[in-house]
Design a protein around this nucleic acid. Structure first.
Lengths: 192, 192
DNA sequence: TAGTGATTTCAGAAATTTCTGAAATCACAG
DNA sequence: CTGTGATTTCAGAAATTTCTGAAATCACTA
């Protein structure tokens, strides 16, 4: 591995993290490298920097492309491909989330729905279905939230996040306003 | 594997998903099995049901215990341990999130902070630090949000999620109210 | 203290995943 | 068309992860 020390620490850690989240270590390292590099890199430069074979780089880049995680760049009078990442970290996060949802969450919902359609053949199966139905409901709720907030511009999303739990305070305030608006007296049991 | 067909589909899919998220396939299968089982199971029953060795079950259960994901139960006059999962799916999700944060996110933040403390020895390193600093800021924002909302009771959390992006509408309303309160006129440029 | 059955440990086996080099393919220039 | 250099493919090698059975440990009883 042939990298500035500071970059190397980052690349190694990122590779390690990737593999803990089910992403190939080399793929993660390549991504980390592209992410911090000042210019786009070509395959050979990547192979060189990480000390891995050219073919491994080729396959890993293809993998990253199927995840929509890298951008292709070209130089005049050079037919090699150069690779880089978007420089907006929020966009990177969005892409990652979208792809993992598509590949892992959506299929899981299908499987659950399919199983829930079937008639249970025993008490054990009946109970299992009940449990799966709870899991299905949870995942649906999370994906609905995700589908909703992913529409927000990044700036609004950031604001929403930075408010965190404080939003619930607002909700309570709103509830009171609505009760009033309906001509009801504020309900003293409706504590904040 | 010796399971009701419907349970088997679930266990197999869950095992597959687990391994895509960096969790050992067998560990995931065991968890799935415990999750849908009507009663707690002992190690032998698990080995039997999944067709794996007793020792594998032992190691996998230990792994699940270090993740705080299983509960131990006992029967009178029986000194074997019986295992089950919490039946609140939200609690399961919270535990999973907390453990992964502890093991993967927090260490990543440390590594980033450590790298950012160092003096860059080149222009490449200077640029890399800038990128890492953006990543650090993103992760910090997400974990702050997480630390905040994890305090909410599940019911409130669910409400918050089901509102999704609608919350931002409220925020705008609030902003207007505040401007009014300060004696300013509502700003017509401040569209909802 | 010895005996019993459950549980854990761990070295090596098995399975899976990742990686490589050689060959094939591709894209373009002359 | 032929030559050149970049890129991809893929069968097998290497590395890593997972799994097992035998032995050790543990908890409890008589």
């Amino acid at each position: 591995m042939n990298l500035a020390p500071l970059v190397q620490s980052f690349v190694l850690h990122f590779g390690e993290m990737g593999s803990r989240w089910g992403i190939n270590r080399t793929v993660s390292q390549i991504y980390a490298l592209l992410y911090v590099s000042p210019q786009p890199l070509c395959a050979e430069e990547i192979a060189d920097a990480l000390g891995i074979s050219r073919s491994n780089v080729s396959m890993s880049l293809r993998e990253l492309q199927t995840w929509n995680l890298v951008l292709l760049r070209h130089r005049p009078d050079d037919r090699r491909d150069f690779f880089t990442t978007p420089d907006d970290v929020w966009l990177i996060l969005r892409t990652l989330a979208e792809e993992r949802k598509k590949r892992e969450v959506d299929p899981t919902l299908s499987v659950l729905r399919e199983i829930l359609m079937q008639r249970p053949a025993s008490e054990a199966e009946r109970h299992a279905q009940e449990r799966m139905s709870e899991m299905h409901a949870l995942i649906e709720q999370l994906t609905h939230w995700y589908d909703d907030v992913k529409q927000l511009e990044t700036e609004r999303l950031a604001t929403l996040l930075s408010l965190g739990a404080k939003v619930t305070k607002l909700l309570e305030a709103k509830d009171r306003v609505i009760s009033l608006g309906r001509g009801r007296r504020p309900n003293p049991a409706n504590k904040s």
